[in-house]
Amino acid sequence: MSTDKLSVDFLDPAACRFTVSDNGFLLLTLAGENRGRVLLRRCYPFVYEDEYISVHDLEDKEIGILRDLKELDGDGRKLAEHHLTERYYCPTVSSVKSIKERMGNFYFETVIDGIDKNFTVKDISRNMRLRPDDSLLIFDADGNRYNIPGYSKIDRKSKRLLEPYLY
């Protein structure tokens, strides 16, 4: 089978109308049909934040995929973007104060939004990922993830503490 036969039936952006309920939940009307509360998921959360957006209903069944949020009308796009920001929120670490190892666990003391935040990382070499866009992702023992958007620009002390554990 040649690859040009592989295609996805994307949702028609003109048929999608995103609104928000009084309580802040994202709602979808698709081709005039009210689909109620919906959840959006990024198919490529790192590379294409606003493209290939999978739309799910409350039963978590996929309604369809949006090719690009830019194709939505202004309000709908803003609402969808806000919903994705909420769903994909990842705390940004501004500095690392210390990393201490104990029993194979690494105890991080960091600063996030000006607040001291401590967390524990297991198997540190696997749970810290330096990405090609210079961001550093850290996954803690509870499944939380933390981001350092510009690793090369972080303060020297933080870099000195983090560097030994990076691939």
């Binding site: 939940f25 959360p45 769903r87």
Partner: peptide, 15 residues
């Protein structure tokens, strides 16, 4: 969600 969670409640059809 990705790195967070939330508790929501439903009253009738409203969340």
């Amino acid at each position: 969600n990705l790195a967070t969670g939330r508790l929501t409640y439903r009253k009738g059809e409203e969340y």
